[in-house]
Design a protein around this nucleic acid. Structure first.
Length: 179
DNA sequence: GCCAACGTTGGC
DNA sequence: GCCAACGTTGGC
């Protein structure tokens, strides 16, 4: 019976990352080298804890445009590098500089993500609200400002259904082969 | 532009 | 440790 507790396939976890497209959009990610970029500038402790402790290589990300037109989930990405210190906090000339964060004991962390796909149509808040399986998403809650939010597998799948796309990864080099 | 909801700061 | 003031987020 002990055998049944052995996890052969590591769980894949799902997240929603918010970004104002004027700061960093899904197009910016698409145009980055290897469609890969670091998710910097998170300066909230709960979101930091997710980045540092919880988000793992291979986790999936819903890319959300906030303060945008439209406000919507616009595509997906995968985590290709787990939490590591956010170097922008160390640079006194950078807009995300934080003198509290020291390289020996970093306060802030980031991950690298790679674009999986941009949806053919953005999925708006109205669509998310109107669909039972997505109507419970944290991002719809009033006053929910957290920029990194956990998403359930059911929500992840339902968003793909709304987008009319498969959640299967298109064929591409395997994780870690490009860094 | 408004403003509610939070998070942070700093005086006490 | 309390809490008022202030700054930020982010939908509307």
């Amino acid at each position: 019976m002990a055998k049944s507790s052995t996890v052969l396939i590591p769980p894949c976890n799902y997240w929603l990352f918010k970004s104002e497209p004027s700061a960093f959009s899904i197009q910016d990610l698409a145009h980055a080298k290897n469609s890969t970029y670091y998710w910097d500038g998170v300066r909230n402790y709960q979101a930091r804890n997710y980045l540092r402790d919880t988000i793992k290589l291979g986790d999936r990300v819903l890319f959300y445009h906030s303060n945008a037109d439209p406000i919507a989930i616009v595509g997906t990405a995968e985590v290709v590098k787990a939490g590591y210190p956010d170097h922008t906090a160390f640079d006194s000339t950078h807009r995300y500089f934080d003198p509290k964060s020291k390289s020996e004991v970093p306060t802030w962390y980031m991950v690298d993500i790679r674009l999986i796909q941009e949806f053919p149509q953005p999925i708006t808040r109205d669509q998310l609200r109107e669909t039972t399986a997505t109507s419970t998403m944290q991002v719809l809650k009033r006053g929910m400002r957290l920029s990194i939010q956990p998403v359930t597998k059911a929500e992840w799948l339902a968003v793909h259904e709304l987008a009319g796309v498969s959640d299967t990864l298109p064929s591409r080099p395997r994780l870690g082969s490009n860094v």
